[in-house]
């Protein structure tokens, strides 16, 4: 589980996060949404242990962040970062296997875990391809498979679907949701409110470095709140099949009222 308490982070006089508290329970998928510069990725970085907050504290699965060694932290949480890169021409399979390199799991299970994750991400057919020659979407799928094989209690995803086509957006979110069902604590930053709405157990809406709303999709994704926070008129309808809210942008204010 993730426990964020009163976290404030300033950089160059600007408060990126102000007094943020967040608790995510094991077995849940929480999605962070909000406009550009709201502090979503910053919050995720703080939770990942990349940045130390000025005040406040973060604990992952009961371990306080500041006092946990890098290697121990890798046993507890995996991170899908924004903007993956690979500097040398490793084969795709090798890149996925890196997820387990320093994981204290029985090595004999590596093979099966890697094969399963690659099949789920639909990258098995490019297992031996040079990872530097992949398209952005293929790279993202490789990174996601790498996150999956790390098999951690806490899974942090920063815009995992940004480069993906429709099919793979759905597949990644379905996998994330599956990991949550299996007991993991999954926290994802998403820009697509409709993906968030379809898969999230809980949506956390951020704006200006603060959390301005959290709850089930129907509670958070209201036309008034989204229009205000995003400064963009929207209307919210019901998904014909899934029954979750669907957010549509509109050109005029009050188009759906």
């Amino acid at each position: 589980m993730i426990d964020v308490r009163d976290v404030t982070l300033r950089l160059g006089g600007k408060a990126l996060l102000e007094d943020v508290s967040l608790a995510c329970a094991a077995g849940s998928l929480t999605v962070l949404v909000g406009p550009n510069g709201a502090g979503k990725s910053t919050l995720l970085s703080v939770i990942a242990g990349d940045m130390a907050p000025d005040t406040g504290a973060v604990a992952l699965a009961g371990r306080p962040l500041g006092q946990t060694r890098v290697r121990d932290l890798a046993q507890v949480r995996s991170v899908f970062p924004q903007g993956s890169e690979i500097r040398f021409g490793y084969p795709v399979e090798e890149v996925v296997a890196m997820g387990r390199a320093f994981r204290d799991l029985p090595p004999h299970a590596d093979r099966a875990a890697i094969d399963t994750a690659m099949a789920r991400s639909e990258i098995a057919h490019m297992a031996y391809r040079n990872a530097q020659t992949l398209s952005g979407g293929e790279q993202a799928r490789t990174t996601f498979a790498r996150v999956v094989v790390q098999e951690t209690e806490v899974v942090l995803l920063d815009e995992p679907t940004a480069a993906l086509d429709l099919r793979h957006q759905e597949r990644v979110l379905a996998s994330a949701s599956e990991m949550a069902r299996a007991g993991a604590t999954v926290l994802a930053v998403l820009h697509d409110l409709n993906l968030a709405s379809a898969y999230a157990d809980r949506i956390v809406l951020m704006s200006g470095g603060r959390i301005v709303g959290e709850g089930a999709p129907w509670d958070v994704l209201t036309a008034e709140r989204i229009s205000t926070v995003y400064r963009q008129p929207v209307c919210v309808i019901r998904h014909p099949e899934r029954g979750c809210p669907v957010v549509l942008t509109t050109s005029k204010e009050d188009a759906c009222v």
């Binding site: 990942a48 242990g49 060694r69 890098v70 290697r71 890798a74 970062p81 997820g99 320093f102 994981r103």
Partner: peptide
């Protein structure tokens, strides 16, 4: 950054 995520100090 990603190396750290995977457990490399």
């Amino acid at each position: 950054r990603q190396a750290r995520h995977l457990g490399v100090d």
